[in-house]
Design a protein around this nucleic acid. Sequence first.
DNA 1: GCCGAAACCATGAAATATCATACAAACTGC
DNA 2: GCAGTTTGTATGATATTTCATGGTTTCGGC
Lengths: 162, 162
Amino acid sequence: MKMDRPPHLKDLEEDAEKQPFLPNYLLFLLASTSAAASAEFHATVREHGLRVPEWRVLACLHDEDGQMVTRLAGLALMEQSRLTRIIDQMDARGLVERRSDALDRRRVRVHLTGDGRILAEEMVQRAAEHEAALLSRLPDGKGNELRRLLKEVYRQFSGEAD
Amino acid sequence: MKMDRPPHLKDLEEDAEKQPFLPNYLLFLLASTSAAASAEFHATVREHGLRVPEWRVLACLHDEDGQMVTRLAGLALMEQSRLTRIIDQMDARGLVERRSDALDRRRVRVHLTGDGRILAEEMVQRAAEHEAALLSRLPDGKGNELRRLLKEVYRQFSGEAD
DNA sequence: GCCGAAACCATGAAATATCATACAAACTGC
DNA sequence: GCAGTTTGTATGATATTTCATGGTTTCGGC
């Protein structure tokens, strides 16, 4: 999604006619910050001929090859049926391949091909570089503080805390 | 988007065959946390007959009625052409209406109708309640800490810091 | 072992998003 | 005030996403 420059939240706050809601709404702050932080790198992703969901799949498989479709969809933040079709395309492009799980034949495991792995490694490398550049814009330590906090909050909100 | 239960990040970390990338990648943590935090409320949104982008538009107009299309698209995290069509639908449903700006006739200002305002107020109320419920799952103060940090980081990453 | 239920993945049909571009209005420098 | 540029919004054609559901395979209680 090609997005314009993010708007400034302050502008909303300046309209004092009544209590503004969004500038302090956590879900909005999370979504906006995520979008603002990702915009640049997502442009890079597209320049490499990938769409964002495809990049997410590559990154997930980079960390753990051969994941099943459902879990991959969860990690890559999309619906299962959408992932199925994205796998179709990535398969047709020779980036991944499906193998059925011998122990549970309902499951389909998605594996990187050689080309897929090369591309995944390159993109992960670029992502890491971009992340470093992003973090360098923040005061020292802020980045790690944010990471720690997000991990903790994710744990709570995703039910991992059970 | 109807999503399954979020996966547990730890699982990725447990695969020690090599350095996992995602569990510490800031953009991934932001996107995953945002998705996990929003999932419940987004279900509520759909139960009220709204899609997420429509809810975002209502929330934006709740804070500042009569915004122009471009800015609304930026705040609601979508492309302009998509917002144009969403406005079409919300207009047809009687939730918003377009008025052209007298001073700059290129601009189209989007206003809540009476019904739109009623729905916006109700949803904002529910969002606030849901947010309170979410925050109550976190240790005291974590929520505010996260908010402060996100605001600061958003400022940097969106270029508002210039 | 059998039966109903649940988990996993794929798919059709309809709705939606995207990209490029068109169109209109407002600026800019002259 | 005019030509060229930029800004703001809409739209057509295409590609994608979604929802509901179908087909398999496994699970659980009996």
